[in-house]
Design a protein around this nucleic acid. Structure first.
Lengths: 329, 329
DNA sequence: ACTATTTTCGTAAACGCTTACGAAAACATT
DNA sequence: AATGTTTTCGTAAGCGTTTACGAAAATAGT
């Protein structure tokens, strides 16, 4: 019940500590048979290696920094969750994780940085590039960098096609901040899919909700005031979808009977039980976090840069329905 | 230039490694003279002990968990900053910090928990209490627990008195979620100060903004629709104040000429340059984080529980002004 | 079969620190 | 001065890993 060490595992598995360590780290020089035996003992006894000892033995102290999210602080639920997940994976691999500023990238002891939401024109990006430290960005980047992102194009396509499948033709898009490229990609995809379906996407059908509930709420109010007609709104984030839901409700529209709404992210918000269950595009957060950690580990071992695009999928819930005849006033 | 170890220090100071360690940790058994000599060598060479080695040698691995914030995920900017600060202090003291769930409190290796925003009736609270692990809550608690919180009473008093000093008499309050006690205390203080000044605080003067921008925006819209008259609104958070600002702006009121607005928190939001500079109550975040860490360290050494109330101060910016004669329609 | 290779694995030395333990030095007490 | 106390400090044994290094075992080559 006290601390389980590598020696205990070695004893139980009838091998030496060196072998256990090699098995654990997937190092070369262990037969598949003994590796499996060791691993099974590990999982039976529930052994988990001491990160400190591991770190110490590995030599050079290494902390991996994660920068604070900046695109908009309101998308923070996303960030906190991500932070947690990355941390989990990295600590498991024996690294220390700290929240740092991009300017700390050169600090001694900092092995690398994980930076959610930087974009090419971001001033912080230059800061990162100018030092040699490896960094992985969470967001789409040119191929010469290492990054992981969800497949925004396919995600938004899924949302729009879902709406089209329900018979909607007047679909407006609620976009996010114009700075972030995530919003940009989602917007472009909306336009492309609509155009491919021979549907109109005039400028007034693109509402800017700035990735916030309030922004989306006001955008809808303005659109309604201008007598914009639509039967569905495809949002670039759940957060904004909630704002849309509120605005529609206040204006007397019923979702999904009068108007359908789709979100994007599907983050596990812990306080939003009051909302209508949202049809949305699910992001595999767990996978994103783990992949980011994985990429960092790869970089640290000198791997070449690469980008990873993760799949999304549509989650159909209660905020969308088939279009009906007389919907708008 | 490579890693500076305790041996280097020992050599330079002409003592043994044991002595250096003792000097560094303020342990008993080192003369003041040698301690100072060692410490000066340390600072000259810029030596900083390896946390992993320290941790390993100290024996029992100890991670300190911080739970995810739940009161409302929108107050997340607050949380992220806090997390960062606590981490900074704790890591400096040789502890590992992880984001954990309250139910992980019993996990082996978890020395203690720092829990922002739990309240007495919180189900998570029971979970914490039932295990013996020490925990410090960020938020006001009965004296038998260890906690740190900003002086909400004095803070809200400062805000209201500032408004009173400007001649306002019709002051409404924008409150947060009814669950959290923080909102409760701020609300009560508003009522008390107003009553003490012989001013009215009827129920319709208390608007519920649910700690979100959107919530506050809608609350103001509703109040305006009901022809509620007021010359100032004192908000329980900056977040809500921004919503109020937006609602007032949309309704054609000028802040601060027509109506004054105060916030509460003064968090460094990195994306809100577009807002009018807010008169608000400043929370010493750095101090809160460090104090939380400090209290945890104390607890770990078996200190008795205690609560700490940190001072707030009023920051006067552009959202408040003297009341004028003809303000409301 | 016997040697040359290759693969698997055990041994033991780090990694940088803390902390008993006991020796030496300092100070008190007679 | 001689002895007893207390304080200061050096020595060395860990803490739980990783990883050369080389021995042993398995496989290949003749």
């Amino acid at each position: 019940m006290s601390k389980l060490t590598i020696h205990d595992i070695a004893k139980h598995a009838g091998v030496s500590t060196g072998t256990v360590s090699r098995a654990l780290n997937g190092r070369f020089g262990v037969s598949a048979a003994t590796r499996d035996r060791v691993l099974s003992v590990v999982s039976v006894l529930g052994y988990v290696p001491d990160p400190d000892a591991r770190q110490l033995a590995k030599g050079s102290r290494t902390v991996i920094g994660i920068t604070r999210f900046s695109e908009t602080s309101l998308r923070n639920a996303y960030y906190t969750l991500l932070l947690d997940l990355i941390q989990e994976a990295l600590v498991g691999a024996g690294y220390a994780v700290r929240i740092l500023d991009t300017k700390d990238v050169a600090r001694p002891g900092v092995a690398g940085m994980i930076v959610p939401g930087v974009y090419l024109a971001d001033p912080r990006f230059e800061e990162l590039r100018s030092h040699q430290r490896p960094f992985v960005v969470i967001g789409e980047m040119p191929p010469e960098y290492t990054w992981v992102e969800v497949d925004n194009r396919n995600g938004m396509r899924q949302a729009i096609e879902h709406l089209l499948g329900l018979g909607h033709t007047r679909i407006v898009h609620m976009t996010g901040s114009p700075i972030g490229q995530t919003a940009q990609i989602r917007l472009e995809t909306y336009q492309n899919v609509m155009t491919d379906a021979n549907l109109e996407t005039s400028d007034d059908m693109i509402l800017d909700g700035r990735f916030t509930q309030l922004g989306a709420y006001r955008a809808i109010q303005r659109a309604l005031a201008q007598k914009l007609e639509f039967t569905a709104v495809a949002c670039a984030s759940d957060e904004m979808a909630f704002g849309v839901l509120a605005a529609l409700d206040d204006a007397g529209f019923k979702v999904p009977n009068d108007i359908s709404v789709t979100g994007f992210d599907d983050l596990p918000l812990d306080d939003d039980h009051e909302h209508l269950p949202l049809t949305t595009i699910h992001q595999p957060m767990r996978l994103i976090g783990h992949t980011a950690a994985q990429l960092m580990l790869e970089m640290l071992e000198g791997a070449a840069p690469r980008g990873v695009l993760l799949p999304t999928n549509l989650v159909t819930r209660a905020s969308t329905a088939e279009v009906r005849e007389t919907q708008m006033a």
